[in-house]
């Protein structure tokens, strides 16, 4: 299973009613092209170590809405303690999918520590995540993801993926920056929720 395969499974299992927090790097163009709907449903963060925490805050803010964190092994490893907070809070509407290729691939494929045997699913299970599983192919990812999205507990899925980055033509690459993404994401949440999040102050 390559990252593009895992992303395809996630996109097919979710809808435009769901919200996503993703890492940047090699994942971003894959997800931007395959995500459900041409809508601004994804906050892509340039902050390794804060993807799951941000998804947690979003899930706690919107307990009626499904939130999916599109994580990477490099990001999870940068702030490993965050999984303990996830396990204690265990919001039922949050699913974390860690795409674990054992590499910092987009900066030249230096190995991450998962390539030396660190087991993120076992760590999550040890932290107390009741639904922490490792998956190695599209079928098992689809099965576990469907169970998590329909379930009543936090889901923590570690998808072991092979190296390999998709090459997207220039017109299909994501060209927005982190500030534009923030505004677009907030406006989309406002549209979904039917209420104002940012703004409302007088202009004069």
């Amino acid at each position: 299973m390559k990252r593009i395969d895992a992303v395809t499974v996630i996109a097919e299992a979710t809808t435009t009613e769901d919200l996503f927090v993703s890492s940047v790097g090699g994942l971003i163009d894959d997800w931007w092209n395959l995500r459900p709907g041409p809508v601004d449903n994804t906050m892509s963060l340039s902050i390794l170590g804060s993807i799951s925490s941000t998804a947690l805050g979003l899930a706690l803010a919107l307990p009626h809405r499904r939130v999916v964190a599109l994580e990477t092994d490099g990001s999870v490893l940068m702030n490993l303690g965050a999984v303990t907070t996830l396990a204690v809070q265990r919001p039922r509407n949050l699913t974390v999918v860690v795409m674990d290729n054992g590499l910092y691939e987009c900066i030249g494929s230096a190995p991450t520590l998962t390539s030396a045997g660190v087991d993120l699913a076992a760590i999550a299970a040890g932290a107390g995540c009741a639904h922490a599983v490792a998956v190695h192919d599209e079928l098992s990812l689809a099965k576990e993801l469907a169970a998590s999205l329909a379930g009543d507990d936090l889901g923590y899925l570690v998808a072991r993926i092979e190296p390999g980055m998709e090459s997207w033509p220039e017109e299909k690459r994501r060209h927005t920056d982190g500030i534009e993404d923030k505004y677009r994401f907030v406006r989309y949440v406002e549209q979904l929720e039917g209420r104002r999040i940012h703004g409302g102050a007088p202009h004069v």
Partner: peptide, 10 residues
């Protein structure tokens, strides 16, 4: 991250 995510969700 927790505070930012909460803000983004209103």
């Amino acid at each position: 991250g927790i505070v930012a995510g909460s803000y983004l969700g209103g």
